[in-house]
């Protein structure tokens, strides 16, 4: 690197997207290039090791305890700056993380030992005794379900199915149906984030001899997170399309394919499914 001329280094820095390279001295350039190259290669490795999207988790979680030490990452200011896709709220999250930082990320922490004088066996939490079915929205187009079945509660457990449907204009549409692999677990359902999903239902049941779906437990969410702006205008607070667009964009929104969209939406592609996990 030292053999290179300043102008060669500058063009390399430009390629690497190093901001402010034109004002740097030679030694600064070399340092910046080394760091950029290093962070580029480690970044590739890191992405491989720790998938960013939460939905890409391992198919089946065998252990009852969540992994706690996986892929700690040093949230360097510079790496955030070079990651142009990082959204504002990602950066806020990074800064908020600093509140809980007691050490340089990645360096070993003193063991977090809790006093054991009260004979509290926190590793074996009491199992949940009552049957549960829950539906929670995660973001537009993604719904999280978990279920707990208890012995004797439902017969035919092997043929139990979980189904997500939407009710649009009194028509029930089945969005996705899975068969339950275990008596307790989590599943992330995917739907079209842009579609008007109306009211969402989660139903647990089985098919009878006549191939009719018999519902055992049902959960509904009234409010599925919505993507994009309302089409309704209040006559008392009337605003023209053009004015509203101007305000929306000035407030940080985006106009994409003639649609107003808020840029921090980070929608998982519906292709990422597979997330049964049991506990």
């Amino acid at each position: 690197m030292n053999q290179k001329t300043v102008s060669e280094l500058r063009s390399l820095a430009k390629k690497l997207g190093i901001p402010g390279y034109s004002r740097m001295r030679k030694d600064e350039l070399i340092r910046a290039i080394n760091t950029a190259q290093k962070s580029k290669s480690t970044k590739k490795l890191k992405t491989k090791a720790t998938p960013r999207k939460s939905v890409k988790k391992p198919a089946v979680k065998a252990s009852t305890t969540p992994k706690v030490e996986a892929g700690r990452k040093k949230p360097e200011r510079e790496s955030a700056a070079s990651d142009r896709s990082a959204t504002l709220s990602d950066q806020e999250q990074q800064i908020e993380t600093a509140k809980y930082a007691t050490s340089i990320p990645g360096s070993p922490l003193p063991p977090s030992h809790f006093a054991e004088d009260l004979a509290e066996d926190i590793e074996s939490l009491p199992p949940i005794h009552r049957p549960r079915l829950s539906l929670l929205p995660q973001k537009p187009g993604v719904f999280h379900a978990y279920w707990v079945l208890t012995p004797g509660h439902l017969i035919n457990q092997s043929s139990l199915r979980l189904r997500l449907s939407s009710l649009v204009q009194s028509q029930l549409h089945i969005l996705e149906e899975i068969s339950l692999p275990s008596d307790r677990g989590h599943w992330y359902f995917h739907a079209d984030p842009a579609a008007d999903t109306g009211k969402i239902y989660l139903q647990l049941g089985h098919y009878n001899d006549k191939h009719e779906f018999v519902i055992a437990i049902e959960r509904g969410i009234v409010h599925a997170p919505r993507l994009g702006v309302s089409s309704t205008i209040d006559p008392r607070w009337w605003i023209s399309e053009a004015e509203f667009r101007r305000l929306y964009v000035a407030a940080g929104g985006q106009l994409r394919n003639d649609q107003l969209l808020w840029p921090t939406y980070n929608l998982g592609s519906p292709g990422n499914r597979q997330h049964i996990s049991s506990w």
């Binding site: 939460s54 939905v55 890409k56 988790k57 969540p66 959204t87 709220s89 990602d90 806020e92 999250q93 939490l125 949940i128 009552r130 549960r132 829950s134 929670l136 929205p137 995660q138 973001k139 537009p140 993604v142 999280h144 978990y146 707990v148 307790r184 989590h186 409010h223 599925a224 997170p225 919505r226 808020w262 921090t264 939406y265 980070n266 997330h275 996990s277 506990w279």
Partner: peptide
């Protein structure tokens, strides 16, 4: 609409593969 100021604008930060195991306990 349903929303938050977390990354992504919804509930993903507090509901994902790293922490979804806590909700059955909390709700129960």
């Amino acid at each position: 609409p349903e929303c938050s100021w977390g990354a992504g604008g919804f509930h993903e930060v507090w509901l994902n593969g790293n922490n979804d195991w806590i909700y059955p306990y909390l709700h129960d």
